[in-house]
Design a protein around this nucleic acid. Sequence first.
DNA 1: GCAAAAACGCGAACCGATTCGCGTTTTGGG
DNA 2: CCCAAAACGCGAATCGGTTCGCGTTTTTGC
Lengths: 326, 326
Amino acid sequence: MATIKDVARMAGVAPSTISKYINGGNVRKENVESIDKAIAALDYRANPFARSLKTGHNRSIGVLIPDMIASFYGNVVTNLSRVVREKDYHCLISSFGANHGMERDNLKFMLGCGIDGLIYAPEDLSADEFNELTAHCSIPIVLIDRIIPGVEVDAVLVDNAEVVYEAVSGLVNKGHTRVAIITGPKSVYTAKERMVGYLRALSDGNVLYDEELVISGKNEFATGYQGFRKLMKMAEPPTAVIATNDDITMGMLTALHEYGIHPSGDIEIFGFDRVDVCSMVKKPIPVVQQPEQAIGQFAARYLLERIEGFNGAPRTQRLKCKIVSK
Amino acid sequence: MATIKDVARMAGVAPSTISKYINGGNVRKENVESIDKAIAALDYRANPFARSLKTGHNRSIGVLIPDMIASFYGNVVTNLSRVVREKDYHCLISSFGANHGMERDNLKFMLGCGIDGLIYAPEDLSADEFNELTAHCSIPIVLIDRIIPGVEVDAVLVDNAEVVYEAVSGLVNKGHTRVAIITGPKSVYTAKERMVGYLRALSDGNVLYDEELVISGKNEFATGYQGFRKLMKMAEPPTAVIATNDDITMGMLTALHEYGIHPSGDIEIFGFDRVDVCSMVKKPIPVVQQPEQAIGQFAARYLLERIEGFNGAPRTQRLKCKIVSK
DNA sequence: GCAAAAACGCGAACCGATTCGCGTTTTGGG
DNA sequence: CCCAAAACGCGAATCGGTTCGCGTTTTTGC
């Protein structure tokens, strides 16, 4: 591999001149030519490690999420990477699959690998752990989708409680008195907020809360699938069910169709995230759509601003979800 | 940030001793103690850039794919990153969204950013371009899902032609004489191979080929959706349709359900990739399942072997797809 | 207890860029 | 045409690790 010295020798100037030229500095016209020629002849490309060693950054940002198969995160990351790429940054992406050890390890790695900033959707990390891990490392971090109470950094969230309130209220107003919810782990921020919306809607609608109608489990297919079956086997099954996550929605829909139940005839159903699927099934079901594109864009912009030196107080952006009922 | 020299000073040994210790070398017991103490006290972490500058690698691999939302790639990448993480490698992931300029740019970036190896699913790159871009860069590359004819590197593929042959033959044997296919761009390797399977099955089944029954477009939802609608509007519509990609499958299913047509009653349908959805709809439809896990694992292993010095002839792994009919 | 062998520690060179201050060349205005 | 100011080029220092050969210490076997 050619180094900057080789180029300098061939072009007949000093390495520092090459460096200056590459980085946008002014150089005499005749030197521009000979440098260009030398670079082309040697197919010179700056060694990224040497450059980063000196400058302290490398134009990359980390993205740490629980899961990259979920359509929600897939969309967020895709949009996010579009924004950062416009500024010539790239993404180091890692997922930890709802595994606490993995989450810690990946975060540790991310913080030590030289990225210029991090976008992070925490699942199960305490403020103490977060502060301990990030104490001696000064890259900016933006939380998405979830926050860690007590951690003060930029965050991009959605109005979880409000949109679930709206959805459940709608069901209650139609006369449903037994509305079930299938939701994620009680420890996860989004699940908690969505639960709040559920409870508030029941109480505002004067519907009695029945804890048997609350199914909480991992954010995965099986939770939705088994949860729905369990609900249907009850002595007095719910007349409406809402899922609060995309994998759970898929599981619920699968179980629903296996039962041969018609949504809105026998039972009313509310999905989450998977707009494509929910609008596709025979009788489309209403579904909560999160603003994935905006989440990705806001997170990217917040982070880039910090990387470029912005130093104001932590900001929190709450984005609105939409209910799609086709 | 503390450097290795700070640690050395505090521990009372030379920097080279710290380095040796960190990298697994033997050091006297008393020194181990004082070094450990110093590292802890200073919260020392090796500067990744300095290390990579000297060693020439950084334990990261690039993953370049057309699209990271598709469940197919999502699964492949998830499995792949599991394997590389076991060896303490991490993934730099980028997608280019079926955009030729983007694909070139991203490839260029990947080759210049210091990764130790690349896993790449090409969409629209010629062998000449590939060779030009990779000429002066010596990291190993493993192609997945698709190959570039004329490029000789490790590749992990699936038996596209065979599985489509099997699927279409099944339809033909049931008596269908008008079998349509909705498939990706004619230029994409996988679409080509799948088309071969289709044509061979027709011909082996003595069914006349009708080019009107072949819909080819981008690998996206709209292709499946509009393609299916177009097929249904024909004077003599097909009695069976196969989609050959996950987004196309989703589009096709959506159109199908909007028409209120029952698969296997009015029409026979074959999906691709989206096993979860295809098995979920009211009347489950058979679907081609690609071995995403195995693809990811093979690709990762091939690449790691090359990174670790394996230098044999290029290998090609063809993995078998499965037909799931629930 | 001694010699040979093994283990260990050290310093200096090095990886390949960027940066900074200083000296030289070029430019522009009067 | 000359002088001051601006533009430009250069060399040396630096970023923070790793590596290598050599000298010293420790271990081993007799």
